[in-house]
Design a protein around this nucleic acid. Structure first.
Length: 256
DNA sequence: ATGGTAGTTGTACTA
């Protein structure tokens, strides 16, 4: 089973690329972030024509997550189960082929010390509580998506430039570590311990053209899922296409 | 310390 995560930065703007990428890569499961649309604008038919069933938790203009799958998606839930408000749609979960998936678009946080940053930390605390209380972490579970956090300096092209800045600050990284301490394996790190493999490149600084990126998209797996992982790839070719997202897809392969 | 681009939107906001 080939499983991908990709922040598409608007599924409507990215639809031509998404279709070409699905045809080329033929992943079985795709977790998307930043769909930036409501259900009525979601490209159900185009995805169905490619053989994908989809579940979506979207909103106008911002956020939005979706799971695409060639086989049935079961036990779907949208948002944290205890979130009555759910104004920012950042979470969707489901089970495919006996593996549970949790697709996340973590709050960006704008700038360390800002109000959005404080909301990011509160959101992350809630995520850790949710993972610890909702799941049996001895079962196959993959938590993946745009975490908007670098794990450590190996994930930063210029660590000094980003020292204690947003996406790299200590408190953010501590929440990512807290998730890993629950027993998750960071699959990209496991396969590329040397670092220097990035998933996001800032449009503003022409980061991709300069090789200046960050690894902020992650695939975290519980031990039974991690043991089945045989291959990990960041699709930098996609990031170099015309009209790309600012994020590259991350693809992992699980042996059946 | 700041800005740069992109998407959606509507003449600002988020990333």
């Amino acid at each position: 089973m080939r499983v991908a995560t990709w922040n598409v930065n608007s599924i409507r703007a990215r639809l031509p690329r998404l279709i070409a990428w699905l045809e080329a890569q033929e992943p079985d499961v795709v977790c998307l972030q930043e769909t930036k649309c409501v259900d009525d604008e979601f490209p159900w038919d185009a995805l169905s024509e490619l053989g994908y069933e989809a579940v979506h938790h979207g909103q106008k203009t911002y956020n939005g997550v979706a799971i695409l799958s060639k086989t049935p998606i079961e036990d779907v839930f949208r948002g944290f189960p205890d979130d009555a408000e759910d104004e920012q749609r950042r979470v969707i979960g489901g089970t495919i082929g006996g593996i549970q998936f949790l697709d996340l678009y973590v709050v960006n946080g704008e700038k360390v010390g800002s109000e959005k940053y404080e909301r990011k930390l509160i959101w992350l605390e809630r995520l850790v509580d949710f993972l610890a209380s909702y799941y049996d972490l001895g079962t196959p579970l993959v938590v993946l998506g745009d975490f908007n956090i670098t794990r450590d300096d190996r994930d930063v092209y210029d660590p000094e430039r980003f020292r204690d800045k947003i996406l790299c600050s200590g408190p953010e990284r501590e929440f990512l570590e807290a998730i890993l301490e629950l027993g998750f394996v960071d699959l990209v790190r496991e396969h590329y311990p040397q670092g220097g493999l990035y998933t996001w490149f800032d449009f503003r600084t022409r980061g991709f053209e300069r090789g200046q990126g960050l690894r902020i998209d992650h695939v975290l797996a519980t031990p039974p899922a991690a043991r089945a992982c045989v291959e990990v790839e960041v699709d930098l070719t996609e990031r170099g296409q015309e009209k790309p997202s600012d994020h590259a897809p991350v693809i992992v392969t699980f042996d059946a």
